[in-house]
Design a protein around this nucleic acid. Structure first.
Length: 199
DNA sequence: TAGGCCATCTGGTCCT
DNA sequence: AGGACCAGATGGCCTA
């Protein structure tokens, strides 16, 4: 993080690279000794009418640094959210971390696959009106942990349903089947291949 | 070495 | 006025 702040310092220098700033800073530094009586009088005259040029530059710089800090925090929050999203997506232990765009697209297709699972199961059980516990939980946002149970999500996609928006070709489903028992580790591989194949 | 990904800085715009 | 959000620019790191 030290480098970050050293960057800030170096960039802040670049941010006011012109003679105005250098002059103002120079004047600020040069004022560290006792100001000349004339300068003192000018300062007194300026008081109440607004800030000196040097002060304006300092205020601007401080504002910029604060804005940079806020922006950094904002991006960190965004990255934290992405990490949380990665955490609920199925992944293999030895798999490299998904990039940001991969995470978003995978999540999109993952949601789509879960929706399809529910829809297909509804077709199978809808007549009775008794949805399986899994589906009820999924509707309540309590879907089982993706990594713990391969059956909690499906790579199956119905040809009649809309496909993930990011798929350049019809998802087809890597082994389309309406049988939920199909959901296995192979399905996980198939779905991941599918998701990664559409980038 | 080129290309991809990322973090950060920056200025503009919109909102409160 | 100040903060949030956004998009462009830039430079560093990593990998094929």
């Amino acid at each position: 993080m030290d480098s970050v702040y050293s960057d800030i310092d170096s960039n802040s220098c670049d941010f006011f690279p012109h003679t105005d700033d250098e002059d103002s800073r120079g004047s600020l530094r040069s004022t560290s000794p006792e100001p000349e009586p004339q300068q003192l009088q000018q300062k007194k005259r300026r008081r109440g009418r607004g800030r000196s040029e040097a002060t304006v530059q300092v205020v601007k710089k401080n504002r910029r640094l604060k804005a940079n800090d806020r922006e950094r925090n904002r991006m960190h929050n965004l990255n934290d959210a992405l990490d949380e999203l990665r955490g609920v997506l199925p992944a293999f232990p030895d798999e490299t971390k998904l990039t940001k765009i991969e995470t978003l697209r995978f999540a999109h297709n993952y949601i789509w696959a879960l929706s399809e699972t529910i829809r297909i199961a509804d077709l199978q059980t809808g007549k009775t009106g008794d949805a399986p516990l899994l589906l009820s939980a999924a509707r309540l946002g309590e879907a089982p942990s993706p990594g713990s149970d391969a059956c909690s999500w499906s790579s199956s996609g119905s040809s009649s349903s809309s496909s993930p928006a990011y798929s350049s070709s019809s998802p087809g489903s890597p082994g389309a089947s309406e049988d939920c028992s199909y959901l296995t580790q192979d399905a996980l591989y198939g779905f991941r291949s599918f998701v990664q194949g559409i980038y």
